[in-house]
């Protein structure tokens, strides 16, 4: 009987500590919305050189705004290591994901436009188009530059073995409008806003955490944060994260974008 009690006690205690542990972390949801009139996406330059691309309606992806809710897509948001040193990573997120991250060349654009990878992960660049592409990984600071030709149907792997300080572009020399961006931080706390302007970062440390914001086409330094005017000094924002879900709405004036 004593043993049964002991086991029951251990199970309960274990359950509580597990619960307590899980509850010590914060989740973050940010919604980025454009204030003002979204600019019309411009046509890309040079597509007439390739008959296959020329037949496609390709518009610049440097600023993707959702027509329904003004959500700003492709805002990168990650812990700012200038102002916050990560002491602990949630156990579920410590291991580098084993999956490969796909960078497709599709309809003469890169899909996705922005990739999040952890050092140790591999990017598989593939070509789903009927025209030849190449993937020029030359915007790195720490990883080795590579630029491989990708015939139709081909795929090649690029291992990202080092973290990058900034955001690194990928180009296709045959089609200079094609741009992708890689965010390779040495931790899992990186978010990227979707087509509705929403990004989520799970299992963050609680307390004051500094984040860095990135958008390909803007210096985001003045915003409305949950309805209040806020100045983001040095593209950095400190949030007081509480246990559980933390939600923020960020409104960015159209004038911040080029």
């Amino acid at each position: 009987m004593k043993t049964v009690f002991a086991i029951a006690f251990l199970l309960i205690a274990g359950g509580i500590s597990q619960f307590a542990c899980a509850a010590d972390w914060a989740d973050l949801k940010m919604t980025f919305v454009l204030k003002g009139t979204p600019p019309k996406p411009s046509a890309v330059v040079g597509k007439e050189r390739d008959p296959i691309c020329a037949a496609l309606p390709i518009l610049s992806e440097s600023m993707l705004i959702n027509a329904k809710n003004n959500g700003i897509q492709n805002v990168g948001f990650y812990i700012d290591t200038r102002n916050y040193k990560i002491k602990e990573i949630h156990p579920d997120l410590k291991a580098v994901p084993a999956n490969k991250v796909v960078l497709d060349n599709k309809n003469c654009v890169f899909v996705p436009h922005v990739l999040i990878v952890r050092p140790g992960q591999t990017i598989t660049a593939k070509n789903s188009d009927k025209t030849g592409h190449n993937c020029n990984f030359s915007g790195f600071f720490n990883n080795t530059a590579e630029n491989f030709a990708l015939p139709p149907g081909a795929s090649r792997d690029k291992i990202i073995d080092q973290p990058e300080r900034g955001v690194s572009p990928v180009d296709c020399g045959s089609h200079p409008w094609m741009k992708a961006y890689i965010i390779a931080q040495d931790h899992p706390y990186v978010g990227l806003s979707n087509a509705d302007g929403v990004l989520s970062i799970a299992k963050l440390p609680t307390g004051k955490v500094a984040f860095r914001v990135w958008h390909e086409n803007a210096v985001i330094d003045e915003v409305m944060l949950n309805g209040k005017k806020a100045k983001w000094d040095k593209a950095s924002l400190e949030l007081e994260l509480k246990i559980g879900m933390n939600e923020y709405k960020v409104e960015v004036d159209a004038a911040r974008f080029k």
């Binding site: 330059v45 040079g46 020399g173 200079p176």
Partner: peptide
């Protein structure tokens, strides 16, 4: 399509294919 030289060097090979890009020192 494998080497795809003509896309940049042009069908005439005179370097008149894709001429809108920049080198890494400029980028």
């Amino acid at each position: 399509k494998i080497a795809n030289c003509a896309s940049c060097h042009g069908n005439t090979a005179m370097g008149d294919g894709q001429t809108n890009d920049y080198d890494d020192w400029t980028k």
